[in-house]
C-alpha cells in the first residue's frame, strides 16, 4: 500500500506525465481548430431540399427486383425515402461525428450456402458478419491515447533503469514481484486517468464546436451514454497498454524498446499478418483494442465458394477485452519472472 502510494506520487510528479498529455491536448486543439476553420459559419440553407441518393436508389431497386426478401414489400417511394440522407450543404460540424452510431442490429448475415470439394458441392457453414463498433473521431483519438500510455509506461520504468534507482528501491522493498506489479498498477491507474481526461477534454471541445458551428442534433441521452461508455472502455484498455509497456521496458531495461516495439507493431502488424498469418488477425492487439473501445465485434476471414475471402464474426467485445488483457498480462508475467531472477549490477 505504501509502495503503491509512492509510485502513484512518482507517476504524477514526472515531467512527462504533464508534458506528453499536454502536447497531445495541444494537437487535439489544433485538429479541432482546423475543423473549425473548415466548417462554414453560414446558417443552414433554408431552401435546401434533401435529395435521394441516386446510386442508392438504383442499387436498392435492383436488389428488390432480384428478390431480396427484406426489400420485397418496399415501394419505390419508400426506397427513395430511405435513400435520402441528412446531408447538409454546409460543412457544418455534427456532434454525432464523434461517434458513428452503428446500432447493434445493423449486422447482416453472410451465408455460405455450399462449398465445392473435388467438384462435389457440400453443405456450407452459416456465418454472420462482425458487427462494426463505433469508429470515428472519439475511438480514433482513443487509439492515439493508447500510444501515449505506452510512452508513459515505457518511460516510467525506463527512467528507473537509466538512473539506476531500481537498485535503490530494492534496498527498501526487496520483494521484486510486488515492486513490478505495483508499478503496473499505480501507473496503469494514472495512465487510465490521464487518457480519460484527454478524451473528456476532446469530447468537450467537440461538443463546443458543434454547438457553435454545427448541430447537437442526435446528442440525446443515449448518445451521451454511448460516449461515456466509449471513454470508460478506453480507460480500461489504456491501463492494459501501460502495463504492456512496463513489461517490455522491464525486460529491455529501457524506454525506447517499449515504444518502438508497440508503435512498430501498430504500424507493421497488419502487413505482416496479411502476408504471413491471416488466421492471426482476430487475435491482433490493436484489432481487439479497437473492438473493446468501439464496442464492436472482431472479424475473421473465411474463404467462401469461389475462393474469395469474407470477413465474418469471430468474437465479441468481451472476448476482445480478454485478448487485450492477455497481450498485457503474458509479457507482464514474463517480465516479473525475469525481474525476480535478474542480477542488478
Amino acid at each position: 500500500m505504501k509502495l503503491l502510494k509512492v509510485e502513484l506520487k512518482r507517476f504524477w510528479s514526472r515531467r512527462i506525465t504533464l508534458i506528453a498529455p499536454g502536447v497531445f491536448a495541444l494537437l487535439l486543439v489544433l485538429g479541432i481548430g482546423i475543423a473549425f476553420t473548415q466548417s462554414s459559419a453560414d446558417p443552414p440553407d433554408p431552401d435546401y431540399v434533401p435529395q435521394p441518393d441516386a446510386g442508392c436508389v438504383e442499387f436498392t431497386i435492383q436488389a428488390r427486383e432480384e428478390g431480396d426478401p427484406q426489400l420485397a414489400n418496399l415501394s419505390d417511394d419508400e426506397i427513395r425515402e430511405s435513400c435520402t440522407f441528412e446531408d447538409n450543404p454546409d460543412r457544418r460540424v455534427w456532434v454525432t461525428d464523434l461517434l458513428s452510431l452503428t446500432r447493434s442490429d445493423d449486422w447482416s448475415e453472410a451465408r455460405i450456402a455450399e462449398q465445392e470439394f473435388n467438384g462435389v458441392a457440400i453443405p456450407g457453414t452459416e456465418y454472420r458478419e462482425a458487427k462494426r463498433g463505433f469508429d470515428s473521431a472519439l475511438p480514433g483519438i482513443a487509439t492515439m491515447v493508447l500510444i501515449l500510455a505506452v510512452v508513459l509506461g515505457g518511460s516510467f520504468v525506463g527512467a528507473e533503469y537509466r538512473a539506476g534507482t531500481v537498485e535503490n528501491l530494492l534496498l527498501w522493498e526487496p520483494r521484486r514481484i510486488k515492486v513490478i506489479l505495483t508499478k503496473c498498477l499505480s501507473g496503469g491507474l494514472g495512465a487510465a486517468l490521464v487518457g480519460g481526461l484527454l478524451l473528456v477534454f476532446f469530447t468537450g471541445l467537440f461538443f463546443l464546436l458543434a454547438s457553435v458551428r454545427g448541430t447537437l442534433e442526435g446528442a440525446d441521452s443515449r448518445f451521451v451514454l454511448d460516449v461515456v461508455i466509449v471513454i470508460a472502455r478506453s480507460m480500461a484498455v489504456t491501463a492494459l497498454f501501460f502495463t504492456l509497456a512496463v513489461a517490455i521496458a522491464t525486460l529491455a531495461k529501457n524506454t525506447t524498446a517499449a515504444v518502438v516495439a508497440v508503435l512498430g507493431w501498430f504500424i507493421v502488424s497488419n502487413i505482416i499478418i496479411a502476408l504471413v498469418a491471416k488466421w492471426f488477425q482476430p487475435f491482433e492487439l490493436f484489432t481487439n483494442a479497437n473492438a473493446v473501445i468501439g464496442g464492436g465485434e472482431v472479424a475473421k476471414t473465411v474463404k467462401i465458394l469461389g475462393g474469395s475471402d469474407v470477413a465474418v464474426f469471430s468474437h465479441g467485445p468481451w472476448t476482445a477485452f480478454a485478448i487485450v488483457a492477455l497481450w498485457a498480462l503474458i509479457p507482464t508475467i514474463v517480465a516479473a519472472f525475469v525481474f525476480h531472477r535478474r542480477d542488478l549490477t
Binding site: 512518482r10 539506476g164 534507482t165 537498485e167 535503490n168 534496498l171 526487496p174
Partner: peptide
C-alpha cells in the same frame, strides 16, 4: 531489510 542501510557503488537517484 529494515535494519540495513546501504550505498552500492554510485549514488542512484532520479
Amino acid at each position: 531489510i529494515g535494519r540495513i542501510g546501504a550505498l552500492v557503488e554510485t549514488p542512484k537517484f532520479f
